[in-house]
């Protein structure tokens, strides 16, 4: 494990960008950004080789602050833009920063298809259980019964388990962490960056402003404590019986399997044609050679006759 110097995250920020950032006091996104930048540092990937792509919402504002190749796209489509980037230039490390509304509602289709293709993207879903930027509307991960500005009587819809979704769609790396567990988050981000294939990391973040105001949780500290108390490391979790799992979230690397990656598959297809081309060219060459040989032979014979 590489030693992480203090303030290493500052090396990755854009100093010509107009700070301060847009995030509210107590928001979890800043912590997660710090964890991610430390993971980039310890992974050793160069700034020039990273493309950070985001969608719309609070998380969507992250790329503007960081000194990578950055793309802030339309709502829900970050993974689709990222697919174009990764497929056209596979040497680039493409990271998608997205939120729960962005990835699970409007962009849900792209999430499952990226996982199905197993294209080499690092998808970090910052899940704060709410639409923060637009003022606290219910999202597909708002827990049943919780309040939102569009669920004033409590949400009557069950929530998505994003990790289960990514796993069943075929992602080769799936993990869950939180804004509280910063060391674990960094380690998971690094593992995700190093994984060849579609990596999906759900990161639980507190939103004391938009979510908290509707659900009597206006203290960021209390929400962070909740993350500590209500999540269980995966090894421990898997030993628990169903009853004890109630109300708890599993945390850590949930899936890490080897599955052929999409751009590698395409390269294999291209290589098939190159092989055919090579063999047909070498055939041609050998034919030409034969032709030349017979020509020379005839020439020699002619000369001999003379």
């Amino acid at each position: 494990m590489k030693n992480i110097p203090q303030k290493v995250a500052h090396r990755y920020l854009r100093h010509d960008k107009k700070f301060p950032h847009v995030w509210c006091p107590g928001c979890g996104i800043g912590t997660i950004l710090g964890d991610f930048l430390r993971a980039v540092y310890s992974s050793g990937i160069k700034k020039d080789d990273i493309v950070m792509v985001s969608g719309i919402g609070c998380s969507g504002r992250m790329p503007v602050y960081v000194d990578f190749n950055t793309l802030h796209t339309t709502h829900g489509r970050a993974i689709a833009f990222a697919t174009g980037i990764k497929f056209s230039e596979p040497r680039l490390k493409v990271v998608v920063i997205t939120g729960d509304g962005d990835a699970a509602a409007i962009g849900g289709n792209h999430l499952i298809h990226a996982a199905r293709r197993n294209i080499d993207l690092t998808v970090i879903i910052i899940n704060n259980n709410i639409y923060g930027m637009t003022g606290g509307q219910a999202s597909p991960t708002t827990p049943l019964g919780d309040y939102a500005t569009t669920a004033p009587y409590g949400s009557i819809e069950p929530k998505f388990d994003l990790c289960d979704l990514a796993e069943s769609a075929g992602a080769s790396f799936v993990a869950r962490t939180t804004a509280y567990h910063t060391v674990e988050a960094r380690q998971i981000f690094e593992a995700a960056l190093n994984k060849k294939g579609c990596s999906v990391v759900e990161t639980i973040a507190q939103c004391p402003v938009s979510y908290g105001k509707m659900n009597n949780q206006t203290s960021a500290i209390e929400m962070l404590k909740w993350q500590k108390k209500h999540t269980i490391p995966v090894k421990q979790y898997r030993k628990l019986d169903t009853e004890k799992k109630q109300g708890k979230l599993v945390r850590g690397i949930l899936v890490d399997k080897d599955r052929k990656e999409f751009t590698a598959r395409y390269d294999e297809l291209v290589a098939q044609f190159n092989k055919k081309k090579d063999s047909s060219e070498s055939e041609k060459r050998s034919e030409e050679k034969k032709h030349d040989e017979t020509k020379e032979k005839a020439k020699k014979e002619k000369q001999e006759k003379k």
């Binding site: 792509v53 793309l71 796209t73 339309t74 829900g76 489509r77 993974i79 689709a80 833009f81 990222a82 697919t83 174009g84 980037i85 497929f87 056209s88 230039e89 680039l92 289709n109 792209h110 298809h113």
Partner: peptide, 16 residues
């Protein structure tokens, strides 16, 4: 997977 992502993918590719 759809036309929204088709358009998104070609913009992403063009940026490379």
């Amino acid at each position: 997977e759809d036309e929204l992502s088709s358009m998104a993918s070609i913009i992403g590719a063009s940026l490379t």
